[in-house]
Design a protein around this nucleic acid. Structure first.
Lengths: 151, 151
DNA sequence: CCTTGACCTAAAGTTAGGTTTAGAAATTAC
DNA sequence: GTAATTTCTAAACCTAACTTTAGGTCAAGG
């Protein structure tokens, strides 16, 4: 009775609430690397439960799977991650989250500045170009001026 | 020279920065209702520029097209919307935004509580069940306890 | 009038993040 | 030792929000 024969995929699914298909999908995206037993079935370490949990949390924070893969790359691959390792990448997550909150707060400020006037007009309203979306590619200025209700 | 023969779709695209195909798609989703000229081509009111602008902003706030359709339903359909009309639905947008910010702030608080311990463990970590995702469907408690690094 | 560019429709393709299906092989339970 | 459960792979399917393609029509300029 080896201390760790590893967990089969269904056990991870049960522990995390994820679908088996989702866990296999994450593996296909490089987020997880189980080994195979003699019969070719996937076997996981107990630490992979935590890894999956992290993935679920990070997704709630709006990270894409490639984003998450990068963050997880910050974990050691030669040993089982310690709580300290997890705490470290938890802070990476926090940075992402802070950035998203800042963006939304700025958006809200701009919206507040606009609600009063109802303008939604291009030159005045900052909401249009939060990331300089309209690139004004040489075709001259695009105004919403003149787009006024005729009533 | 009728005061309004309406704008062709390309003019809207130019004014808003949207692709022509996107504008047609929005129509298919019920967000816009242009009329047709004699030749069967779409013609738009100038107010539709503002409508499209609103759609773009609302999308940045994370609203889905069906969400936006509902919000736009708050505009009068018998007359061109006034700035006041727009301001009113701008506030609806703000409610959505506030809710999203609150969610993220709560998430961040929970994360802060977790960073120190690096636990990410199910019974302790609130991050798991922000919406009671894990429904614990009768199959007994799912613990992450015991999922400790062995190093 | 004729050409060019803008426009039309319908259908298929795209990306992200998965789920479903089908048929076969491995594992577990009795 | 057999039956039931789990797992395997590959490929197709799903939603959202569009874009691209194909094949044709409309409109504007010279």
């Amino acid at each position: 009775m080896a201390v760790s024969e590893g967990l089969p995929i269904g056990a991870l699914a049960g522990r995390t609430g994820l679908a088996v298909s989702a866990i296999r999908y994450y593996e296909s995206q490089g987020l997880l690397k189980p080994w195979r037993n003699a019969g070719g079935q996937r076997r996981y370490q107990r630490a992979d439960i935590r890894r999956l949990s992290f993935i679920m949390i990070a997704q709630q924070f709006g990270l894409s799977l490639p984003d998450i893969r990068e963050v997880l790359a910050g974990l050691p691959n030669n040993r089982t991650p310690t709580p300290k390792d997890w705490a470290r990448i938890g802070e990476l997550l926090r940075d992402h989250l802070d950035a998203r909150i800042d963006t939304l707060l700025r958006l809200r400020d701009n919206l507040d500045g606009c609600i009063g006037c109802g303008c939604l007009s291009l030159p005045k309203c900052k909401l249009y170009n939060p990331d300089d979306t309209a690139k004004a590619k040489g075709s001259g200025p695009r105004y919403l001026l003149g787009d006024r209700p005729e009533v």
